[in-house]
């Protein structure tokens, strides 16, 4: 077990060069507009963000991708990439996922090569796929014989931990506050994994009006630390 877990820890490390460092996915709008200025407010944001958005995009996306990889249904896997891309209505956040997905695919192909990931990378290069981190997580975890549940959990964890890191810089908050929030988020991530298990595929990409608007408004902010 330890042998399989270590590559996963490396993949979820906030130092992993996925590019997530540059993206706030709308959080920066809330920070600049003074809705999120304290650790407590960030906690409220994260609670809703994880359970009402991330669960339906990255979480459910990763679960479906994992099964498709296991069944080798590649055409459906590429169709999933398109659905995840089209379901994000903010151009910046859509590009953010695409860039992170592409960078992760490139990096993971070197670190944890597999035929499916190589196919995905080829599709991305030919512009037949966009790239999405949830798909890369699913493909890498499947190849490493990590369970589907753990794949979804680590995919959510990576997204949440990088967002908290960025919030610590953006608000700003102390490092201890950031780590305490990440610790608190474990339980929320755990609930999200349970929710993902019970969702129907038609819930994929569901999002929330306020969050979408914040992501869209980010494009109009004058001074920005983050690209989304």
């Amino acid at each position: 077990m330890i042998k399989e877990i270590l590559p996963l820890i490396q993949l979820c490390d906030s130092n992993f060069p996925s590019g997530a460092f540059s993206h706030s996915f709308g959080l920066e709008t809330y920070i600049q507009e003074d809705y999120v200025t304290t650790a407590e407010e960030l906690k409220q944001f994260l609670h809703v963000y994880i359970l009402k958005s991330l669960t339906y995009t990255d979480g459910l996306g990763c679960r479906i991708a994992y099964d498709l990889a296991a069944e080798q249904k590649l055409e459906e896997l590429w169709a999933l990439d398109e659905v995840l891309y089209a379901s994000c209505s903010s151009a910046e956040s859509r590009e953010a996922s695409r860039r992170i997905g592409q960078q992760m695919a490139r990096m993971c192909l070197t670190l944890y090569p597999s035929d499916t990931l190589a196919d995905y990378q080829k599709k991305i290069k030919k512009k037949q796929c966009y790239g999405h981190p949830a798909l890369v997580f699913a493909l890498v975890c499947y190849e490493l014989t990590i369970s589907r549940e753990l794949a979804v959990m680590s995919c959510l964890y990576a997204g949440v931990s990088s967002l908290i890191q960025n919030a610590v810089r953006g608000i700003p908050l102390g490092q201890t506050d950031g780590q305490l929030l990440l610790l608190w988020a474990h339980e929320v991530i755990q609930s999200a994994v349970e929710v993902v298990e019970g969702l129907s595929e038609s819930a994929l990409g569901r999002t929330q009006p306020g969050l979408e608007i914040a992501q869209m408004r980010h494009e109009q902010l004058h001074v920005r630390l983050f690209m989304s």
């Binding site: 339906y56 398109e82 089209a86 379901s87 038609s202 819930a203 569901r206 999002t207 009006p209």
Partner: peptide, 10 residues
């Protein structure tokens, strides 16, 4: 022939 908008609201 490309999906460009998927809008799912609950």
């Amino acid at each position: 022939r490309r999906k460009i908008v998927i809008d799912r609201l609950l």
